[in-house]
């Protein structure tokens, strides 16, 4: 693993290092304060190609770091280079960077197609090329059938996929994804993860943030762990992996047949607990093996034609794992 972090600013780079810097995303002693509130502090980090996971509890600085590397925010201190470009020069950077933000807002009145197509026209593409790339992006996220519907009428998962399509539509070399799996049902989640892996295999840098550890663990080549605006761990994820696997995760699900799902899940020993909510649509499940659980859940949903409303990981258990992983480093800052 080539990812490096430190609390010290980098010194003069040698020629090979400079070439490497042009193929990496480099944070050099970067801090961001919102008035007196800390966003991130003294981050020095080099992210190589491949999939990098930014993980940390809510408020740890993941989105701030992403907004800084895409120029939506300016650092209070330090410098950032994305493949050798400064994020402040958006007219260069965004030709090869796509950012799927968490902002769940869209220009009013646009259809899914118009949302991507208009974005590509603002890039400066001619009609034919913009049209072709729009359909390719919509096809990649499985949104072709809903392309002519207004985005306002989309479900949360569809809106998430529309944002993803926008981010990949111009075929960027760097893809920054802020909680991209939020709101997706298990099957869409698996498909999107496969898409990320394919894009990474094609040579794309993918920076993905999540507060769901097992997801990041599953797809990332390298992981940066953030807490309270500081990078507290990075690189070796084996300890994290063991810890994740030892802690049961708690999944909340809403669907039309929760009793059936619970009974099918209970046939497997890696499901520790499943309890029904009083409204007869909610289900809480605890499992020790997230990967096997999600695979099983997908097949149960397909085999029984279950209408899924949401599947989310409860934060409580995740925070317990963070607390263990971060330990004293996350305290007393």
């Amino acid at each position: 693993m080539t990812m490096t972090t430190s609390n010290q600013p980098t010194t003069e780079l040698s020629t090979p290092d400079r070439i490497a810097a042009h193929q990496s995303i480099v944070f050099d002693n970067v801090s961001k304060f919102y008035g007196e509130v800390l966003g991130v502090n003294r981050v020095t980090l080099t992210l190589p190609p491949g999939i990098t996971g930014l993980v940390g509890p809510n408020g740890s600085g993941k989105t701030t770091l992403m907004n800084l590397m895409t120029g939506l925010l300016r650092p209070t201190d330090g410098t950032i280079r994305v493949l050798g470009e400064s994020p402040s020069a958006g007219q260069h950077l965004f030709r090869h960077l796509g950012y799927c933000t968490q902002f769940d807002a869209f220009p009013a009145g646009m259809t899914g197609y118009q949302f991507i197509y208009s974005f590509l026209r603002v890039h400066g593409l001619a009609h034919t090329e913009a049209d072709s790339l729009t359909w390719q992006a919509l096809e990649r996220v499985n949104l072709k059938d809903a392309a002519k519907r207004r985005v306002e009428g989309y479900s949360k998962g569809m809106r998430q996929r529309a944002r993803l399509a926008q981010a990949i539509s111009h075929q960027p070399k760097v893809l920054v994804l802020d909680e991209p799996l939020n709101g997706l049902d298990p099957m869409a989640r698996a498909e999107v993860i496969a898409l990320f892996q394919q894009l990474a295999a094609e040579g794309c840098h993918i920076i993905i943030s999540s507060h769901i550890l097992h997801e990041v663990d599953m797809i990332s080549d390298q992981v940066v762990l953030l807490s309270s605006g500081y990078v507290v761990a990075d690189g070796d994820v084996s300890g994290m992996r063991t810890e994740i696997h030892e802690h049961p995760i708690q999944v909340l699900m809403r669907c039309d047949k929760p009793s059936l799902v619970a009974s099918r899940l209970f046939e497997h020993d890696f499901v520790v607990e499943a309890s029904l909510h009083d409204d007869r649509r909610g289900l809480m499940i605890r499992t020790r093996e997230a990967d096997r659980f999600y695979g099983l859940l997908n097949s149960i949903i397909v085999d029984n034609d279950i209408d899924v409303e949401t599947v989310t990981v409860a934060d409580g258990d995740v925070n317990a794992v963070y607390k263990y992983l971060i330990g004293n480093e996350g305290e007393g800052r």
Partner: peptide, 23 residues
């Protein structure tokens, strides 16, 4: 929902010439 498909024409710029390359 069917699996995500990757059109043959969708090729990453790093794999070929990018028609949208900067001047």
């Amino acid at each position: 929902m069917s699996g995500l498909s990757v059109p043959e024409t969708a090729q990453h710029p790093s794999l070929g010439q990018d028609p949208r390359a900067e001047p």
